[in-house]
């Protein structure tokens, strides 16, 4: 448990101000970890995201980055 806590985890991060809320990312996420909130922008559930990067590769606006989060 301790080790896991110190580990840096890779998670998707959406630049929400630039998001067009198209939902392309939602369709490719294997974990259901990304959702479009009320037609405004995409939101990542960091508890579910495994940082696989599929959404980042799919996003037609290229505004998702996979970054390290210290959890």
């Amino acid at each position: 448990m301790m080790e896991e806590k110190l580990q840096k985890k890779r998670k998707a991060r959406v630049a929400q101000a630039d998001c067009v809320a198209c939902g392309s990312c939602v369709k490719v996420c294997p974990k259901g970890a990304i959702k479009v909130y009320k037609g405004l922008y995409a939101q990542v559930d960091e508890g579910l995201c495994i940082g696989c990067g599929r959404c980042a590769a799919e996003c037609p606006a290229a505004i998702i980055e996979i970054g390290e989060v210290t959890a």
Binding site: A21, C22, G23, V26, V36, G39
Partner: peptide
Amino acid sequence: GGSKMYCNL
């Protein structure tokens, strides 16, 4: 509906 369900799905 206040959503982009059309685009999204």
